[in-house]
Amino acid sequence: MRILVLANFGMGLYNFRKELLEELIKQDNEVYISLPDDEYVPKLEKIGCKFIDTHLERRGTNPLTDFKLLLNYVGLIKRVKPDVVLTYTIKPNVYGGIACSITKTPYITNITGLGTSIENNGLIQKITLMLYKLGLRKASCVFFQNQANRTFFEDNRIVKSKTRLIPGSGVNLEQHKSEEYPMCDDKVRFLFIGRIMKAKGIEELFEAAKLVKEKYPHVQFDLIGGTEENYNKKLDELERLDLIKYHGRQDDVHSFIKKSHATILPSYHEGLANVLLESASSGRPVLASRVPGCIETYEDGLTGFGFEAMNVDSLVNAIIKFVNLPYYEKREMGMAGRRKMENDFDRNIVINAYLQEINLIINKENYNESIREVS
């Protein structure tokens, strides 16, 4: 069987879907991956994927460029002749879905989050929803990572296909194993992992760091992630003032999680936050916005603390509440988070959901083929 995967960058595919790709290859399937070339492509090829370099502007809104992407996907599907296509993130979901409809190819879509284009009201939102409606129209199954996104798509009649709720991308419990909780003798270390951009709540985090450090100078804020918006000057300034420590992009986030006392994510919206799953799996409490995609990952007061998105005071209060917890309560929060990941977010749950849907598609195609032969 040939399986084609459409994605927008290699990091997400490798870090969060590698185990699914490995399982598909293990079952003697040919797995093709279509995405822009980056440093993760050799890693994906090493596990057995066949790479097809595909130009894609993740944040561009040029209609001509997007139309070229659609034509590219149509041509690609006709060349590869996949039995099923898997799509991730907005442009592969939309234009890959339309291309599959045109070529009458079965496909499974994963809504990894609404994204800024849908979260913000206006013309861009209307256009995006219209395109999504076209892209999802003939999907064999649409996976959602949180119930709020699923409800939004169904209430707005964007999706009429079969839908399933999955626990995000799940978490690899072996890779992100439970780590011994570090002592808090001289520092309490908070870790932010994510793209340095407004929608991740980075501006609120900057302001909170200033306010918290005034009263609690022993608190340290470590930031990991590439800058997708113009925050370089601000990062340099805050580092000079010893308010944050910025570590740039890192391939090995687990080593940073291991040294931290809690992970913090003030995001405005998420599909389902992988950084929170990985942190909780490692035995670290999480402090996160009370928004869909974050609230599913923690139990307020038990495995972490929630706070209101876009609200500096609420964020500061959550940080201070955690700082003032006794050491054993911090550690117990981390242990409770690990148990939650084991029970609800094992990545094998996601892999099995995909295998079930792919088997349904193949069995249906085989049945239809046998009917045609009899006729």
Rank of each mutant, 00 (worst) to 15 (best):
Leu6Gly: 06
Ile166Cys: 05
Val94Ile: 15
Ile295Gln: 13
Ile361Glu: 03
Leu86Glu: 05
Gln220Ile: 13
Glu239Phe: 09
Ile118Glu: 02
Pro266Ala: 15
Lys177Ile: 03
Ala273Ser: 11
Gly75Asp: 11
Asn172Thr: 03
Thr112Val: 05
Ser375Asp: 11
Ile358Asp: 03
Lys321Ala: 12
Lys364Glu: 12
Leu235Gly: 03
Lys126Gln: 15
Phe16Met: 05
Ile264Trp: 07
Leu355Phe: 07
Asp252Ala: 07
Pro285Cys: 02
Lys126Val: 14
Gly226Val: 09
Ile158Trp: 05
Gln145Glu: 01
Thr151Ala: 11
Glu373Ile: 00
Asn324Gly: 13
Leu173Gln: 02
Glu204Leu: 08
Asn15Trp: 08
Phe143Ile: 00
Asn62Met: 05
Thr61Tyr: 12
Tyr14Cys: 08
Arg157Lys: 15
Leu71Phe: 14
Gln356Ala: 11
Asn359Arg: 15
Thr128Gln: 12
Leu191Gly: 04
Asn274Glu: 03
Lys104His: 11
Leu123Phe: 15
Ile351His: 06
Arg372Cys: 11
Ile224Ala: 10
Ala309Leu: 06
Glu239Cys: 13
Asp346Lys: 03
Lys259Arg: 15
Gly168His: 03
Gly293Pro: 01
Leu287Glu: 02
Glu239Gln: 15
Met183Thr: 15
Glu119Phe: 05
Phe9Asp: 05
Arg2Phe: 02
Leu223His: 04
Asn317Gln: 10
Asp37Gln: 02
Leu302Phe: 12
Arg347Val: 06
Glu45Arg: 15
Lys200Cys: 10
Thr61Lys: 14
Ile202Cys: 04
Val159Leu: 01
Arg150Trp: 00
Phe305Leu: 09
Arg17Asp: 08
Asp242Cys: 05
Thr303Gly: 08
Leu13Phe: 11
Glu369Arg: 15
Phe192Gln: 09
Ile257Cys: 11
Pro292Cys: 06
Arg249Pro: 01
Leu70Ser: 10
Lys321Arg: 13
Asp37Thr: 02
Ile127Ala: 15
Thr303His: 07
Gly115Ile: 02
Asn311Trp: 08
Asn343Glu: 15
Lys210Glu: 12
Leu35Tyr: 01
Asp37Cys: 00
Arg150Asp: 00
Ile244Met: 07
Leu76Gly: 01
His254Trp: 13
Glu30Pro: 00
Leu20Glu: 08
Glu239Tyr: 11
Asp252Val: 07
Leu355Ile: 07
Lys43Ile: 09
Asn62Lys: 03
Glu39Pro: 03
Arg79Phe: 09
Val323Phe: 05
Asn156Leu: 09
Tyr327Ile: 05
Met11Asn: 10
Leu238Thr: 13
Asn348Asp: 11
Thr112Ser: 03
Ile33Ala: 02
Gly115Leu: 06
Thr61Trp: 11
Thr303Trp: 03
Ile158Thr: 12
Leu69Ser: 12
Thr103Phe: 00
Lys46Thr: 14
Met335Phe: 04
Ser281Val: 07
Glu119Trp: 03
Ile193Gln: 07
Thr54Gly: 04
Tyr298Ala: 10
Tyr32Phe: 13
Glu308Trp: 09
Lys104Arg: 08
Ile244Gln: 01
Tyr107Thr: 04
Arg2Val: 06
Ser281Asn: 06
Gln250Asp: 03
Lys104Leu: 04
Gly75Ile: 10
Glu154Met: 08
Thr263Val: 15
